[in-house]
Design a protein around this nucleic acid. Structure first.
Lengths: 326, 326
DNA sequence: TTGTAAGCGTTATCAC
DNA sequence: GTGATAACGCTTACAA
């Protein structure tokens, strides 16, 4: 593979001049430039990016650490983040942690050893002690001390869900979620605001008796059977706000088993976008997280990273997406 | 950030010795090693990976070019490929081409300019002329001259589908696919073997009159309306093999509109895994591509790449996954 | 305008 | 066992 020296030698000039041509920096006489460009084309020379990174001390690669690209929402987020970064001249490394702390640490170390210029972090683990706060890190949906973060407007999402259920004249309203996450895992999530916004709005409208159902986090996957017993005491609910579409999906299955009709007997609202679930025969009405807006917010924070404003937050608006369940 | 010189200076030795300790190469006196290890820990020194790549002329990064991580199957494949590469000490860069040739070229160039050590290529575009055949490239599902590739056993998949429809005593059998791809796009795909295996087996069993329906490629997305007119002439089919689950999904919608019951009146078989589609209320019976096995095959080819056997092929077995539609 | 040379942080060769 | 030092391929003062 030809290098800059070859180009200089064949073009009969110094390597600095070649460099100037490549980077369009500094003055180069027109004829010299043309000569060099010709040689570059002939050799189909491409500057070695490793060497360039070496000199510039940055490589324009950002790592995205996330649990799992198999989940539809993550797959979408991944897609949009990569597009955003690409438009700004950055490449993206993908790191499926599978929620394993050890793997997350390996990837976080890539920031310290100059493998990448920045890290986007999406985790439920407490990686606080493995973060070098002087380096560019942006977190999605989780609070870490002095780490800027991006989250959907979960509070507003809760309000939207409450409004919708009240519009439908629901009288026995329930929230189902795992938002105690913060207490269970030591990692504070923005997701807990879904419940807060929901309950807040209901209270403000004079509705006080929200039924609060918690289910254990730590297994993303919940069975219909598990939920049946959880929901058993509440036979007469007519409006349910679920912390995710995944939960909403399972709840609807439980209701169907019970002989309830959705949405005629019970309204159900999920969270995420209602685009992730199979075999339901209907579209879940859901509070929509916008992966494109989230990606843009993440890109802004990571590419303009500055240690000084490491407590920046960017909150992305949500809206309710119309489905068949509420 | 401390570098190897700092470590050497503080440990009172030469940098070569530090390097030996880091890489566990060559002999180092026990005491010297311990001393150096202590300094490394104190400084929390991490070798600069860019510099290392510079010297070694490789950086242990593989790029995966694919149309879109939003598609469930691609998201899964991505996940498994990343895990495989990780287990072998490699990191993965992700490149959503969105099927745009220009973006694919940018990423393919990363191979030439040393940004990555290898490329996994999943494309429908004819990128033949942009490939440097001396560099490590592995293609999935597409033939390029002298580029090793991995594909599912599409031929066998076709056979399995044929067998299943015959077992169900189907009398009017149809294939729906876009496998003429090769003629339309100049890129040969292994996918065309689905039809070949299917038709072959039917012929071998004395069934000759397979109805062959083609729909235009180039739009991955097909509307129910488009399909209705395509299928209109064939009111009495009772067994359909579709080239993908996406097609199967649409076909089932069309059949439902027609008042046909699936699987009672018509058996439908898809291809991919039947895990990708919403709102159907049933699981598609499908020929299953195994993303883990595919990922392993890809990893084998890319990490053991050798120009000499650039026409290697790895064919991954498929099986039929039981669903509700056939 | 252009070229020389230092420097980026490693690894590896070759003396000692 | 260990330490200088060249080399990897580039960018960028600085000098000419």
């Amino acid at each position: 593979m030809a290098n800059i020296k070859d180009v200089a030698r064949i073009a009969g000039c110094g390597i600095a001049t070649v460099s100037r041509v490549i980077n369009k920096s500094g003055y180069v006489k027109k004829e010299t430039r043309e000569k060099i460009e010709k040689v570059i084309a002939e050799l189909s020379y491409q500057p070695n990016e490793i060497a360039r990174s070496m000199t510039l001390q940055k490589n324009h690669i950002i790592a995205f650490i996330l649990p799992n690209s198999k989940h539809l929402f993550f797959g979408e987020l991944l897609y949009h983040v990569e597009e955003e970064l690409f438009d700004y001249g950055y490449k993206m490394m993908i790191c499926n942690s599978s929620e394993q702390l050890e793997k997350e640490i390996v990837y976080l170390d890539m920031l310290k050893n100059n493998r990448v210029d920045g890290v986007i972090l999406l985790t439920n683990n407490d990686v606080e002690q493995y973060l070098n706060k002087k380096l560019p890190i942006v977190s999605f949906d989780r609070y870490f001390l002095n780490v800027p973060y991006v989250a959907s407007d979960n509070f507003q999402g809760g309000i939207l869900a409450a409004k919708r259920l009240l519009e439908h004249n629901c009288k026995n309203i329930m929230f189902i979620g795992d938002d105690a996450q913060g207490e269970h895992t030591d990692v504070l999530t923005d997701v807990s605001k879904r419940r807060k916004g929901f309950v807040n709005h209901l209270h403000s409208q004079g509705y006080e008796n929200v039924i609060n159902v918690e289910y254990p986090l730590k297994n993303y996957f919940v069975s219909v059977e598990q939920f049946e017993s959880l929901l058993n005491p509440y036979q007469d609910v007519d409006g349910i706000f679920c912390i995710s579409d995944s939960v909403a999906y399972t709840v609807i299955k439980v209701l169907e088993k019970r002989g309830k009709r959705v949405p005629e007997d019970v309204k159900v609202i999920g969270f995420d976008g209602g685009r992730s679930f199979n075999n339901l025969g209907m579209k879940i009405t859901s509070i929509n997280q916008d992966p494109l807006l989230i990606a843009q917010a993440i890109r802004k924070l990571i590419l303009n990273y500055d240690v000084k404003d490491s407590n920046k937050k960017l909150i992305v608006p949500v809206k309710i997406s119309e489905g068949d369940t509420a």
